[in-house]
Nucleic acid binder design. Structure first.
Lengths: 318, 318
DNA sequence: CTGAAAGCGCTTACAG
DNA sequence: CTGAAAGCGCTTACAG
């Protein structure tokens, strides 16, 4: 229709709408095509275009359930870095499950330019026919990760300095490798600092309600066994602990100090404000997008882990 | 390749992988095709499939920037309702802007089965070549909305009962119609209850930091002019007010009561816990998905607004 | 029950 | 500088 209206061929229209007219199409014809495109409101069919071309301009970001506001930051970092050249689309998994190979397979069908996978399950090797970048997947290839060491060791020395000698850890149920690493690094830092960890283990889905339910079951035992500080694998988990402590009249940080990971925006307004190992989500998203862009351009950027730091607040007596 | 391996034709493979083999393909051939598909890890090419078919199995949900955790709930509602038949993909706008016609155009190219638009800008009429359902777009056609009246009137009577006679409203900068409606309904309810509203108006982006910055500029004037309660158009905005009040030593709710809209999960753990008009996001997502499904099936479900209610907490003295 | 063939709307060598 | 034509990987009448 556009070609007909502009009085030219389909091939010429294709060149013009794809910005490949330089030195190939004469100025008057370009103008006529542009006019026809505008008048008709023509927009290139994505399916046909990516079929003919072999792949499209879509970038897919697969993330776990977004009930953890951390991912909103990651998404923003990716979005802002990708720019106009690519179209970002997101997919989220079911609550409580991590992105896996199956999710990647499902989106390969769309022939995206690339796929980003945030906090993938540790059980599978993720690979695809298109470039893939993993986020927060320690140990995986083509991944961008945090360097948790600075944040975790600051946290443990902070707790140690406040006199805590026996602490508990509230883990996530997530199968993402990043959670295993958080726990391992924390245990290691505690051992090095002479801080012991409670035998009473607990883990919960990454929602406040789930964490509160679990905390309700173990908090009394923790306190009774001499635990004076609880570290949660994510801020949302720590919120659950705060809620139960408040409802039971357990003073935070007086009786029990609480800390988390992520440093969500709302962690500055909780009761009390939450000490947290800050994981800058937008930075992670940005780094992942840059890495994908480099893979697509054939230039390999140096992979460097993103720094983390402790944000001490009232929940640990800061 | 699959056809070759199964010793049959491409057409037959197509029938089998699309589940249309009943009464068209013999059992042994179906089995051979299935085996070949498994062995080769074959997956239908989405671009080619939707090109041939005319439209695909994608449903696109376009939402504002996800820094408001409210949208995570909406997404979950949509996701859980759509089920296996459709593949949900999300798109988010830039921070601070609302989905508009341009975003819808961009996703029409993907030939989705339908498009959902959450909190669209009020300036444009959204229409497309595929079925579109609007979420939280009062006044629009084919929209699913909240009935804010119960929630807002409960909020105003709650404030009135606590003795508040002069209040302020912190609006969002969002151009979404839903924010205009929240404000209008609140003003109306105040007028009816004999509660006056401050002339000092304020609005901020829907992030805690932005709201805190704005609050820092107006809080003193509000208090000085006799305002005893602030209602924010979203919980994230209210969090900003809480943060500034805490840093200035303004007692909440003693000196200033604070309330919001949304009832985010974290609103139960803020200092103090936040009174909020609960907007059940998952319900909105579910209703929108059901409406789209009905449009696709040609059955029109009755449009009914979703109920809202007040969740009174400590920030207003509950 | 099975397969050859047209066609979906593009892009890209290629010939003119 | 321009256009006719092949081909991207499917689906779907249609003929057998």
């Amino acid at each position: 229709m556009v070609a007909e209206r502009a009085g030219t061929s389909i091939a010429t229209v294709s060149l013009v709408v794809n910005g490949k007219e330089r030195g190939r199409v004469s100025t008057p014809i370009v103008a006529r095509v542009r006019a026809a495109v505008d008048e008709l409101g023509y927009v290139v069919d994505h399916a046909a275009s990516s079929l003919a071309r072999g792949s499209g301009d879509l970038v897919v970001l697969i993330a776990p359930d977004l009930s953890n506001p951390f991912f909103a930051e990651v998404i923003r970092g990716v979005r802002d870095t990708l720019g106009e050249r690519f179209q970002l689309v997101l997919s989220v998994t079911e609550r409580g499950s991590q992105p896996g190979l199956e999710d990647v397979r499902r989106f390969e069908r769309l022939r995206p330019a690339g796929i980003l996978v945030d906090a993938p399950t540790a059980d599978q090797t993720i690979a695809a026919s298109v470039p893939v970048v993993l986020l927060d997947a320690p140990g995986g290839a083509d991944a961008v990760n945090y360097d948790l060491s600075a944040g975790v060791s600051s946290l443990v020395s902070h707790l140690g300095a406040a006199g805590h000698r026996h602490v508990a850890y509230l883990d996530g149920t997530s199968r993402a490798q990043t959670f295993a690493v958080r726990r391992a690094m924390f245990e290691q830092a505690c051992a090095a600092a002479g801080v012991t960890m409670s035998d009473v283990t607990a883990q919960a889905d990454l929602t406040i309600d789930a964490a509160a339910e679990v905390a309700a079951g173990v908090l009394a035992r923790w306190v009774a066994s001499g635990v004076t500080a609880v570290v949660a694998a994510a801020d949302t988990l720590a919120y659950g602990v705060l809620r139960v402590a408040a409802s039971r009249g357990i003073a935070v940080p007086g009786v029990l100090a609480v800390a988390g990971f992520d440093d969500l925006p709302s962690s500055s307004v909780t009761a009390p404000a939450l000490t947290s190992v800050a994981l800058p989500g937008a930075d992670l998203g940005r780094a992942a997008a840059l890495r994908l862009l480099a893979m697509l351009d054939g230039t390999e950027p140096p992979a460097h882990a993103l720094p983390t730091r402790l944000v001490p607040r009232a929940s640990t007596g800061a």
